[in-house]
Design a protein around this nucleic acid. Structure first.
Length: 801
RNA sequence: GCCGAGGUGGCGGAAUUGGUAGACGCGCGGGACUUAAAAUCCCGUUCACGCAAGUGAGUAUGGGUUCGAUUCCCAUCCUCGGCACCA
C-alpha cells in the first residue's frame, strides 16, 4: 500500500481543527500543566523559512511527547509584529506596515497550520495589535512609577542624506547603506530603562535548567567586577576632580597617566587652548568608529594630550591627561587611570607616547621581570607603594580602598558592563511611548485609563528629519494629564524588545481587557516549563525578559521570580554558511518541500539533519531518504504478516522503545529517527510483526510524524486521536536482551579479533577465549602478557611486551 | 578584537561520555525486476596495498596523559553566533 502524505495531512489538520484538539482548557486541573513555548516569529515578508521550522517542528514534537506522557500542554503562538523591516518596506513601496504585516501574519498562520503544529490559536497574541500594546504601554508606566525609567542623552546613527536615524544594520563601513552618505553620531534625549538596578539579581541562576553557555554569556554580558572609584584632582584647578574606576586600586602608585573617553563631557572643559584643535579632531574621528573597532585590543592605541595634568592622590605626582578612544564613556566613569607596568593596553599606550612605566607589583615567586618590556598583569606583591609594600594583591586592594575612603579620595565600587536599556526609537512602526510633555508640568506619564495610545494612521513615515509620529498633528497635540493645559505627546516608539519581553505572560489571557496578566492562570501555568529559541537571543531578549519578569514579580503582577524554568537553544540553520535573514536575502522556503513530501517528512528531515541544538548548513539532499523511510514504515505497518507473538519482534521493539524514549527526553530527534529506521529495516527483513509492536511503534513515531501516526492509529482500528493517549510505551529490559555478547579483542590497544560469548560467561572464560583466537595468537607469540583488561560485555585488551 | 559555540568519509551525521571510529541517511558503484526508464529490492562503499584473509594510516593541526583518546590536558589554525537600533 502507498501512503499519500499530502492528502492525508490535510484531512487530519481539518479533523484536529474541528475537534479543537489543540485548544488547551487552561482551567482544567485533571492533568499536570505544561507550558511549552517557542520564541514567536517576526512576520517578515519572507514568511516562515526553514530556520523557523527547524525551531518549531521539534518544539511541537516535544509538546506532543509531553502530552502523550500525560500532561496538559499549552503551546501558544503569536507574532512579534512591530519592527524595522515593515517600516523600511513601507518607505520603499508605500504599502502601509499595518497592511503588509497583516498579509504576512495571515500567510504565516497558514504555514504554521500546514506544519500541523499543536498551536493554540485561541490564545494568539500580536504585538502590534492595540489590545496587546495597550499593556506594553501599561508596562512602561509601571516601570516609570517604580522609578526604573530615566531620560538622558544618547547618541544615534544619523544619516544626513536620508535625514533619519539608522539601525546598526543599516550602516556599512560608516556609510548609509541606502544613500552612501557618511553616518554621523547625533545626541538625542531618549528614554532608558534601568536594567542595571537589577544587575546583581540577574546574575542569580539558581533553579534554572539553562544551557551553561547561555548563563556564561549572560554573566559576561552583565560583567560584574569589583574595584574602586578614585578621584584625581586637576593640577592647577584642584576643585575639579576626574573620577576613575579601576579593578586594581592596588596599583595606584603606578598610575602615570589618565585617559578620558572622547565623548566625556569634561573633555571640552579641561582641554587647554593649545590642544583644542587636535583634541576636537580626535573626538570627531573617534565618533565615527564602531565600538568593536575601538575595543579591538590588537589595534594600535591612539590618543591625544589635553594639555592638562592631574594629581595622583597616592604619589602626589603630576600625570598627563589624554583623550583616547579605547576608553568608553558608558563603562565605569568614562575615565581610566593608566598603570602601564600592569596592564597590557596601558603598556602599549605608554610605550607609544613615551610615558613612564613604573612597577608597583612583583611576582609572588620572586622572579625578576622587566616591566619596561612587558606588562605584568598577574596578582603578586606590592612594591614601590609606600604603605602597601610587601602586601599581596588581594589584600592590597582592600587596604588601598580603606585608605582612599579615609582620605576621601574614593571608595570601593562594584561595576557592571551591562548598560541601561535604551528603548526610544525614532520610528513609526512600534508602540508609542505613553508620555506627554507639558511646558509647565514637564514629562508626564499617560494615565492608565487613557491607554492604549493608538498608533495613528495619518502619518508620513518617509524620513523627513523628525520621528514619523511628529507628522500627525492629531496625535501630537493633547492635554496635560496634570494641569489640563496644552501639551504634546512623545513621538518616539518603543524598542520591539520591550514588546517581546512579556508576551509569554499575555498568552495566558490575551483577551482580558482588565489586567495585563491573569493572576490565577499565572499561578497555575508559570513559569514556562520549556522555552525553545535561538542562541542569538542569549544576551538581549532573554535578559530583558528575565528583567521584566523580575520587575513584574516585585510589583506583584506575576508569582514567580524567573520566567523560564528550562531553556533550550535550537541550532542555527545557515544557508551557505551564514544565518538566514531577509537582509542577507538567503532564506529558504519550506513550502515547496511540504507540498511535495508533506509536513511530516519535512519535519523529520529537519530533525534528522543533525543534533537539534547544533543546527547546520541547509541542503535538501537526503529528504528522499526520509520519504522512503515513511513509505517503508507504512509497509511494515500495513503489509506484513501479523503474528500473535514473536521473540525477535519483541526484542527489536523493546530496544527501539528504550532508544527512542531516551532520545526524545534528550531532544535527540536525529538518533530517535535512526532507531526507528533500524527497526523498520530489521522488521522488513524479518517479514513479520505483532499487533503490540504495531501499536507501540506508532506511538513512538507520533511526536515526530503526527499526521502519519494519526492515520496509522485509525487504520489499525482505534477511535479518537492518538494524541489523547497518555500511556507511552513501556520498556521491558528482559524482552530487549540479546542472547549473546560480542567481545572485541585488542592486543596493545589494536583491534585483533572478535568473538561471541554466552551471557553467563565470566571474565576468566572470556579472556581465555580471547587468547585462543587465531589472529590474536599471532600477536601473543613470543611475548609476555603484562596486563589483561576486560571491559564487561565489550572488550578484552591484552598488553604484551 | 572580546564573549560563546563548533571542526569526524564524497555529503548530513553516529559513537553507551575513556573501550570495535564511521550507526542511520544521502550520494556513488555493481546487480535484480523492466522492451526501456522511473520506482522498488539486493550487494558493496573511510583511505592506501591486497583476489582474499588481513596489514598500515585515519576524527582540523602539533604535542601530552593513558593498556586504550573523536572523548581528558596544553598550544595553534579555520568556521559560525553575539557585541547593546535586524529580530
Amino acid at each position: 500500500m502507498t501512503y499519500i502524505a499530502t492528502e492525508r495531512e490535510q484531512y487530519w489538520q481539518k479533523m484536529w481543527q474541528e475537534q479543537k484538539l489543540y485548544t488547551t482548557d487552561l482551567t482544567d486541573n485533571s492533568k499536570p500543566a505544561y507550558y511549552n513555548l517557542t520564541m514567536f516569529p517576526y512576520p517578515s515578508g519572507d514568511k516562515l523559512h526553514v530556520g523557523h521550522w527547524y525551531n518549531y517542528a521539534p518544539l511541537d514534537s516535544w509538546g506532543r511527547f509531553m502530552r502523550m506522557r500525560g500532561h496538559s500542554v499549552f503551546q501558544p503562538m503569536g507574532f512579534d509584529s512591530f519592527g524595522l523591516p515593515a517600516e523600511n518596506y513601507a518607505i520603499k513601496t508605500g504599502v502601509h506596515p499595518k497592511e503588509s504585516t497583516t498579509v504576512n501574519i495571515e500567510k504565516m498562520r497558514q504555514q504554521l497550520t500546514a506544519m500541523g503544529g499543536m498551536w493554540d490559536w485561541e490564545h494568539e497574541v500580536v504585538t502590534s495589535d492595540p489590545e496587546y500594546y495597550k499593556w506594553t504601554q501599561w508596562l512602561f508606566i509601571k516601570l516609570y512609577e517604580a522609578g526604573l525609567v530615566e531620560r538622558r542623552k544618547a547618541p544615534v546613527n544619523w544619516c544626513p542624506g536620508c535625514q533619519t536615524v539608522l539601525a546598526n544594520e543599516q550602516v556599512e563601513d560608516g556609510a548609509c547603506e541606502r544613500c552612501k552618505s557618511e553616518v554621523i553620531k547625533k545626541n538625542l534625549t531618549q528614554w532608558f530603562i534601568k536594567i542595571t538596578d537589577y544587575a546583581d539579581r540577574l546574575l542569580d541562576y539558581s533553579d534554572l535548567d539553562w544551557p551553561e553557555k547561555t548563563m556564561l554569556m549572560q554573566k559576561h554580558w552583565i560583567g560584574r567586577s569589583e574595584g574602586a572609584e578614585i578621584e584625581f584632582a586637576v593640577f592647577g584647578d584642584e576643585e575639579r576632580k576626574l573620577r576613575v574606576y579601576t579593578t586594581r586600586p592596588d596599583t595606584l602608585f603606578g598610575a602615570t597617566c589618565m585617559v578620558m573617553a572622547p565623548e566625556h563631557e569634561l573633555v571640552s572643559q579641561i582641554t587647554t587652548e593649545t590642544y583644542i584643535k587636535e583634541v576636537e579632531k580626535y573626538v570627531d574621528h573617534a565618533s565615527k568608529m564602531t565600538e568593536i573597532d575601538r575595543t579591538n585590543e590588537e589595534r594600535e592605541k591612539t590618543g591625544v594630550f589635553t594639555g592638562t595634568y592631574a594629581i595622583n592622590p597616592a604619589t602626589k605626582e603630576k600625570i598627563p591627561v589624554y583623550v583616547a578612544d579605547f576608553a568608553l564613556v558608558h563603562y565605569g566613569t568614562g575615565i581610566v587611570m593608566c598603570t602601564p607596568a600592569h596592564d597590557l593596553r596601558d603598556h602599549a599606550f605608554a610605550t607609544k607616547y613615551d610615558l613612564p612605566i613604573k612597577q608597583v607589583v612583583k611576582p609572588k615567586d620572586g622572579t625578576e621581570i622587566d616591566v619596561q618590556k612587558e606588562a605584568f598583569k598577574e596578582h603578586g606583591i606590592a612594591v614601590n607603594s609606600d604603605f602597601l609594600n610587601g602586601v599581596p594583591t588581594a589584600e592590597a586592594i582592600t587596604k588601598m580602598i580603606s585608605w582612599l575612603t579615609e582620605q576621601d579620595f574614593g571608595e570601593g565600587k562594584v561595576n557592571f558592563k551591562l548598560r541601561d536599556w535604551l528603548i526610544s526609537r525614532q520610528r513609526y512602526w512600534g508602540a508609542p511611548i505613553p508620555i506627554i510633555y507639558c511646558d509647565d508640568c514637564g514629562a508626564q506619564p499617560v494615565p492608565e485609563a487613557q491607554l492604549p495610545i493608538i498608533l495613528p494612521d495619518d502619518v508620513d513615515f518617509n524620513p523627513k528629519g523628525t520621528a514619523p509620529l511628529a507628522t500627525s498633528e492629531s496625535f501630537v497635540n493633547t492635554e496635560c494629564p496634570k494641569c489640563g493645559g496644552k501639551a504634546k505627546r512623545e513621538v518616539d516608539t518603543m524598542d520591539t524588545f520591550m514588546c517581546s519581553s512579556w508576551y509569554y505572560l499575555r498568552y495566558l489571557s490575551p483577551k482580558n481587557d482588565q489586567v495585563a496578566v491573569d493572576n490565577e492562570m499565572a499561578k497555575k501555568w508559570l513559569p514556562v516549563d520549556m522555552y525553545i529559541g535561538g542562541p542569538e537571543h542569549a544576551c538581549m531578549h532573554l535578559l530583558y525578559a528575565r528583567f521584566i519578569n523580575m520587575v513584574m514579580y516585585d510589583l506583584g503582577y506575576t508569582p514567580h521570580k524567573e520566567p523560564f524554568t528550562r531553556l533550550v537553544h535550537q541550532g542555527l540553520i545557515t544557508k551557505d554558511g551564514a544565518k538566514m535573514s531577509k537582509s542577507k536575502g538567503n532564506t529558504v522556503s519550506p513550502d515547496e518541500f511540504v507540498e511535495k513530501y508533506g509536513s511530516d517528512v519535512f519535519r523529520m528531515y529537519l530533525m534528522f539533519l543533525g543534533p537539534f541544538t547544533e543546527g547546520g548548513d541547509w541542503g535538501d539532499q537526503g529528504i528522499t531518504g526520509i520519504a522512503r523511510f515513511q513509505q517503508r514504515f507504512y509497509t511494515i505497518m500495513m503489509d506484513l504478516e501479523m503474528v500473535e507473538t514473536d521473540k525477535e519482534v519483541d526484542r527489536l521493539l523493546h530496544k527501539t522503545i528504550k532508544k527512542v524514549t531516551d532520545d526524545l527526553w534528550n531532544m535527540q530527534f536525529n538518533t530517535a529517527l535512526a532507531a526507528l529506521m533500524e527497526f523498520t529495516n530489521a522488521i522488513l527483513k524479518h517479514g513479520k510483526i505483532t499487533e503490540s509492536a504495531r501499536e507501540k511503534v506508532t506511538l513512538l513515531i507520533a511526536p515526530m510524524a503526527p499526521h502519519f501516526a494519526e492515520e496509522l492509529w485509525h487504520l489499525s482500528g482505534h477511535e479518537g486521536s492518538i494524541f489523547n493517549i497518555t500511556e507511552w510505551p513501556e520498556f521491558d529490559p528482559a524482552l530487549a536482551k540479546d542472547d549473546q555478547l560480542t567481545i572485541v579483542v585488542q592486543v596493545n590497544g589494536k583491534l585483533r579479533g572478535e568473538f561471541t560469548a554466552d551471557l553467563t560467561a565470566d571474565k576468566e572464560a572470556i579472556v581465555l577465549a580471547a587468547k585462543t583466537l587465531d589472529n590474536v595468537k599471532l600477536y601473543l607469540d613470543q611475548k609476555e602478557i603484562v596486563k589483561e583488561i576486560y571491559v564487561p560485555g565489550r572488550l578484552v585488551n591484552l598488553v604484551v611486551k
